[in-house]
Structures are given as structure tokens and as C-alpha cells.
């Protein structure tokens, strides 16, 4: 019962983070800031939903599979994000920068 409540809380928290990230994806002003919003979905949203599902699954092969999905997401999402950022910069997408910035984009 306690385990059920904990897993429900985790799943709801993960869902909330997913929606937050999606709102950020719509609200953010330029491409690079949108990527930060998307990384919330990839990390916190995914982690909490998977943790909630793990608590539901108990100790079985399903748990190990969920952990494998989590590891896969956590290893691949930064690679895709990094490739995306680098490709965008190489193609000349200029990031919007705050005023009074010390370092310049060469």
C-alpha cells in the first residue's frame, strides 16, 4: 500500500515534469533555450516515470528491463543533444545571448 502511494507520487511527478518540459519547449525564445527545456523531459520526466513503474513491477525481469531502458535513455539523450547543438552552431544558427556577456561566440 505504502509502495503503491510512493509509486503513484513518482509517476505523477514524472508526468508533471514532462508537461513542464513541453511547455518550455513552446515558451522558450530561441532554439538553444528550447533544448534546455527538452532535456528536462529526457532526464527528470523519464527518470521519475521509470522509477514509479519499477516500484509497481516489484522484483522481476521487468524491473531489470525498465532499468535497461533508463540507462539507454540516459546514455543516448546527451549524445543526441550534443550532436544537435553542434550541428545547429555549425549551420550558423546564432544563439540568443544575454546582454553584458563576457565570452563571445567565434
Amino acid at each position: 500500500m505504502l509502495l503503491d502511494i510512493a509509486s503513484w507520487a513518482l509517476i505523477l511527478l514524472g508526468g508533471a515534469f514532462c508537461i513542464t518540459g513541453a511547455i518550455g519547449l513552446l515558451r522558450m525564445p530561441d532554439f538553444f533555450t528550447r533544448m534546455h527545456a527538452a532535456s528536462i523531459i529526457d532526464t527528470l520526466g523519464a527518470a521519475f516515470i521509470l522509477m514509479g513503474l519499477i516500484l509497481q513491477a516489484g522484483f522481476s525481469l521487468v524491473t531489470v528491463k525498465l532499468i535497461a531502458i533508463g540507462i539507454l535513455l540516459f546514455l543516448t539523450s546527451p549524445v543526441a543533444t550534443h550532436a544537435l547543438a553542434r550541428a545547429a552552431l555549425a549551420r550558423g544558427v546564432q544563439p540568443m545571448l544575454a546582454k553584458g556577456d563576457v565570452s563571445s561566440n567565434s
Binding site: F17, G21, G24, R27, T33, I40, P95, A98, D101, N105
Partner: peptide, 18 residues
């Protein structure tokens, strides 16, 4: 980051650093 997204003023100050 979640707090920044949900803030109505959207207080971002994007910065590049080397």
C-alpha cells in the same frame, strides 16, 4: 529549470562559456 519555465517572466539569460 522547471521553475524558470513556469515563471511568467521567463527569466533566462543565455550564455556561452569556454
Amino acid at each position: 529549470v522547471a521553475r524558470i519555465i513556469l515563471d511568467p517572466r521567463l527569466p533566462v539569460s543565455p550564455t556561452l562559456v569556454r
